[in-house]
Nucleic acid binder design. Structure first.
Lengths: 234, 234
DNA sequence: AATGAACTAGACCGACCGGTCTACTACTAT
DNA sequence: ATAGTAGTAGACCGGTCGGTCTAGTTCATT
């Protein structure tokens, strides 16, 4: 009765096929860079992620996602049991992409900890600026956007987003810990400070979106490095 | 061909009818404090504002708004030409309510400027806590929510929200100016600092919503008073 | 050559969307 | 008394929503 919906597996499995078996099962990573099944799934993911980011969850129907992906509804529901499950998959992929394409580089230990935060601010500004240049609008944070739109409606999505924000928090905590170890920072509540920095970042992004003006980010975002929540003294 | 839709007028006009013409047209401000037509309109506004806040713009249809207000569709479209216009009216009313019920008191000059910011933080926490207690969810900021959901879709709404955020900024600027005048603050960019405080506030609220946990606000929000954007030195 | 699974195609479904329309009621002004 | 207007009622509209279903196609395996 229940369909198969292979999307769960593919996320992790494709990565592990680096062995030198040339013949078999996993057709996705070897030889053909654009084989039909995985291509279809990826196109759906990319389409959904673009459309939902530039508009909103509710405003983008699965018909629109399919059309923009060049895929038919039948295929869509072969891969995803529902729009909600698609969104969950989009979030997973988006976080992985963001981590690999940005967080890892931005928070790398090649410069002093607090300067990494400035690099983070700068990168976020540049990203939003680039987006604004080719869509004409400041779109903000893909995670923050969905968080606000769906947190009260879709508990599964809220949970996924909560986990993503916790991972981001862990990344920033690492930076702060490095700063403490380097003696650049004293007597702060590391976890709360990381949380406050994320909050500030999300808020700046929100304001840039309402004002439809990226320059808000250029002015405000660098102050993220100055935020501190002091260690609680009992 | 086009219907009348009296709501446009009422917003500004009711305020200006302080002249002593007793006889005519505007029946809404004089004598009867609860005359039927205004009651219906208010019920629609209240219903929409509650529903949209606890769910989202897209998730709440006009049928649901009418039902929750105990009003029929015919009446709804007598007062509002569209769901979008209703939302505009809701935003106007919400800001006025917030200003009268909270901002005016919170930012009053009875205590030192920077303490007013703490009072603001405390009030926001208490508000969200109360909301969470009777809805089971942290709903966040009504303005921030709509800002993120609709800024890229409904320019008129985005503009209204932008104006609201600018007014809020002006309120905080006043507090900061008082602080500067009192010698509590030096060399800051007042406008940008006010903006940063709003950003931080919105971001904290967003995080509280994703984590569905008001305590986030209790921990983070008070630090709003420490935020400063230094005066730009050229 | 045949089998079965993965995938695609697209017609179709009931529910609901925002919005319209006509008829009716209640009240005001004359 | 009457005419006009503001407001109410609720059936109705075309369109779109998320999702289903059946029939076909492609392809690896035997």
């Amino acid at each position: 009765m229940e369909a198969e919906h292979p999307q769960r597996k593919s996320a992790e499995d494709t990565v592990e096929s680096g062995k030198f078996v040339l013949d078999l099962t996993d057709r996705s990573t070897i030889i053909t860079p654009m084989n039909p099944p995985l291509d279809t799934l990826d196109r759906i993911l990319k389409s959904a992620s673009e459309l939902m980011y530039s508009r909103s969850y509710a405003d983008v129907g699965v018909a629109a996602i399919c059309e923009h992906a060049g895929v038919k509804k039948g295929s869509f529901y072969h891969f995803f049991p529902s729009k909600r499950d698609l969104t969950l998959a989009v979030l997973d992929k988006s976080y992985i992409d963001m981590k690999e394409n940005m967080l890892d580089a931005v928070f790398a230990s090649d410069i002093p900890p607090l300067e990494r935060l400035l690099r983070f601010a700068e990168t976020a500004y540049e990203f939003n600026k680039a987006v604004a240049q080719d869509t004409g609008q400041v779109l903000g944070c893909p995670f923050g956007n969905l968080a606000i739109e769906l947190s009260t409606q879709e508990e599964a999505i809220r949970l996924k987003l909560e986990r993503i924000f916790k991972k981001l928090n862990a990344n920033i905590r690492q930076v702060l810990q490095d700063a403490v170890d380097a003696g650049d920072l004293k007597d702060i509540n590391i976890d709360a400070t990381a949380q406050a920095m994320i909050a500030y970042f999300e808020g700046c992004t929100l304001l840039a979106k309402v004002h439809n003006d990226v320059e808000v980010l250029r002015t405000l975002l660098p102050q993220v490095a100055q935020i501190r929540i002091p260690a609680q003294q009992l």
